[in-house]
């Protein structure tokens, strides 16, 4: 059985932005995501946020809220924190925007600014820079909705001793026109901070476990996907 403590939760969904300890409403469902501005995420000016594509803004915001919730946003020295995100569509919207700059001038007008964001893992790099995170990082994708797969990967990394702390979750915009839909993938970013142990001054949301057979459990009770996991974590926290 793999296990870790859930020490932070952050999200951006169609209902807005949130953090677990602020007891904000969490709804992961269909609809239009809010247009994120720097002020929605960071109190201080941020030179990079305004230049990012919408996918990176979404992912960075989700990670920022999770780290803030865990008390890990502020840093002075780089930290070996890993990042794992699952996505169904990745940066396909940015890909479309970028290639639309290629077509008109036969490539002469291709945007280097947009091209830099045509990798689905670019936002992990943005998060690493912003928060000084030097652990391993990757974006994963499956043919269907990912369920709790990114958290399972994080549990593996923790159990192998590769990281002490990981931020893992899901990140998707609505698919661009013409792109085949992946059922069961609502727009939004939801990230959780997983650590091997409790941290001082941080009351955990509970223990996430993965059985060798593949099932996931929160404090011993089965859990099916990220939405259910977060909802149950928040219920626990609201009872504290």
């Amino acid at each position: 059985m793999l296990s870790a403590r859930i020490n932070g939760i952050g999200w951006v969904t169609v209902a807005g932005c949130g953090q677990g300890r602020l007891r904000q409403d969490f709804v992961l469902g269909a609809g239009e995501l809010p247009q994120l501005s720097r002020a929605d995420v960071f109190a201080q000016p941020d030179r990079r946020f305004g230049r990012m594509d919408p996918f990176s803004r979404l992912g960075l915001a989700g990670i920022a809220f999770a780290l803030r919730d865990a008390g890990l946003e502020v840093w002075q020295q780089k930290r070996a924190v890993g990042l794992i995100a699952a996505t169904a569509y990745g940066c396909l919207g940015t890909d479309c925007d970028y290639f639309d700059t290629v077509i008109p001038g036969g490539g002469a007008l291709a945007s280097p600014q947009l091209f830099a964001y045509t990798l689905s893992n670019t936002f992990l790099g943005e998060a690493a820079i912003r928060f000084g995170l030097t652990g391993g990082g990757m974006v994963v994708s499956t043919a269907s909705a990912p369920g709790l797969a990114p958290l399972g990967l994080a549990l593996e990394s923790l159990s192998w001793g590769e990281e002490e702390c990981l931020v893992a979750g899901i990140c998707d915009l609505n698919p661009p026109a013409g792109v085949p839909e992946v059922p069961g993938v609502p727009p939004g970013a939801v990230f959780l901070v997983l650590e091997r142990a409790d941290r001082e001054n941080v009351s955990s949301y509970g223990e996430l476990q993965k059985a060798s057979g593949g099932g996931y459990f929160l404090d011993g009770s089965p859990v099916g996907d990220v939405a259910e996991l977060v909802a149950r974590c928040l219920l626990t926290k609201n009872r504290d």
Partner: peptide, 11 residues
């Protein structure tokens, strides 16, 4: 095997 981010620049 090992991996790490240099947390420096995106490109």
């Amino acid at each position: 095997w090992g991996s790490a981010n240099d947390a420096n620049h995106i490109t």
